[in-house]
């Protein structure tokens, strides 16, 4: 299988990689670029653990061919904090115990940030539907919803 040479931007940095045409963006992030924050929970778009932003849209990186990302802007969990300064959502997730095992956390944080950028003052129901594609098996979602609300309130007040 002849490989593709792709130039893209990941978390604001230029990135180049070689990939097989059937490799996904998730494969490349994890296996070629060492960015293992996005997780493969299903590989079929059902769990959301691999969520990233692609050209400003929330997507499952398991449902994107790496070859499609030529010239694209990709943002992953690794780019969410600003240096040692955690994003409000990240900090509040720790403070509000919104994670247990933590495997779904990167995907949920990326998705929650996308929500708050679009809707800074969501209702609980809006959060729950927005995050319906992010499975969490540990928390029952309760503390996740509360943490997103708390972070949203804090972000609105700044």
């Amino acid at each position: 299988m002849k490989k593709l040479h792709i130039s893209t931007s990941i978390n604001g940095d230029e990135a180049q990689f070689i990939c097989a045409p059937d490799e996904t963006l998730l494969d490349v992030l994890r296996d070629h670029l060492g960015l293992t924050g996005a997780k493969e929970g299903c590989g079929t778009g059902d769990c959301g653990a691999c969520s990233v932003m692609l050209n400003g849209r929330l997507v499952c990186s398991c449902l994107v061919l790496a070859g499609e990302t030529e010239g694209a802007e990709v943002e992953t969990i690794e780019g969410m904090a600003n240096g040692d300064d955690l994003h409000t959502l990240q900090r509040v997730f720790i403070e509000k115990a919104a994670l247990q095992c933590g495997i779904c956390t990167p995907g949920i944080l990326v998705a929650a940030r996308a929500l708050l950028e679009k809707n800074p003052d969501p209702t609980d129901t809006e959060i729950r539907y927005w995050l319906a594609g992010n499975l969490c098996r540990c928390t029952g979602y309760d503390k996740i919803i509360k943490a997103v609300q708390a972070a949203a309130a804090e972000m609105r007040s700044v």
Partner: peptide
């Protein structure tokens, strides 16, 4: 159809 993520594509 699908999740927010799926809607992105």
């Amino acid at each position: 159809i699908g999740s927010t993520q799926v809607q992105g594509r």
